[in-house]
């Protein structure tokens, strides 16, 4: 299903983005990876671009001068990159709050904006945003993070309307916690909080990468051309 498709993944150097890149490479796709740092992936079908998604002009420049020249078309975009600081609002550091908005929301917007220019005039294009269970559960400490993840679902819904005439669908998957570098980098108390949240889910376990790729496969399928502006939650959340 992905053979010879050009799939762009943000945040591809680690965590879910890294696992998704490996997944699509196994299925013979060409993967365009984006992250702030270098990638460990060495594969003839993998091309990595170092971009800080908080620097929106560098996103535009990279698409114009590099990605757009290396790849004439993009079939699927997976907006996965995100940063997370879990902290009570009154003591949330200003920089961390701004970083979450700049990377999670505006980074997703500018990547979708620039990528969609290379997704036109085709019968198949997909934008898939990775959101979070935090949008529904709204845990204390996740004010900005949950807000940005809610915002990218709205972004997908609006872009779905704008881009439908170009055969581009835009959907969102709201994932539960998965044991990634980002999760493990949290403090011990934050990890305990996340474990408590997981234990209270209708399906009380952490997500596996297969749970995520299952939904991505559905959104990405050619049969899903009539599925757009939708959010699917994992783990029984709604």
């Amino acid at each position: 299903m992905y053979k010879d498709k050009n799939i762009l993944i943000t945040g591809s150097s680690r965590g879910i983005g890294f696992q998704l890149a490996k997944y699509f490479l196994r299925l013979e796709a060409n993967v365009i990876g984006i992250s702030r740092g270098k990638s460990k992936i060495i594969d003839i079908n993998y091309k990595h671009y170092i971009i800080n998604l908080a620097d929106h002009n560098s996103i535009i420049t990279c698409f114009k001068n590099e990605i757009g020249k290396d790849f004439k078309k993009i079939d699927i975009v997976i907006n996965n990159a995100a940063v997370m600081t879990s902290q009570f609002s009154m003591i949330m550091p200003v920089k961390n709050a701004i970083d979450m908005v700049n990377i999670n929301l505006l980074g997703t917007f500018f990547v979708s904006r620039e990528a969609s220019k290379f997704m036109r005039n085709k019968n198949f294009s997909r934008i898939i945003n990775i959101s979070s269970m935090a949008t529904s559960l709204e845990p204390a400490g996740d004010s900005i993070y949950a807000a940005t993840k809610t915002a990218i679902a709205t972004l997908a819904n609006v872009m779905a309307k704008e881009l439908s005439s170009l055969n581009i669908t835009c959907n969102t998957i709201a994932i539960t916690a998965i044991e990634t570098d980002m999760l493990l980098s949290h403090s011990a108390s934050a990890q305990i909080k996340i474990k408590q949240i997981i234990n209270n889910l209708p399906i009380p376990r952490a997500a596996k990468i297969d749970d995520i790729t299952n939904v991505i496969d559905f959104f990405a399928s050619e049969r899903s051309s009539y599925i757009t502006a939708q959010t699917i939650y994992l783990g029984g959340i709604n």
Partner: peptide
């Protein structure tokens, strides 16, 4: 010309 076509023209 519809609005999305105008957008494509501008791009």
């Amino acid at each position: 010309i519809d609005s999305m076509t105008i957008v494509s023209i501008v791009v």
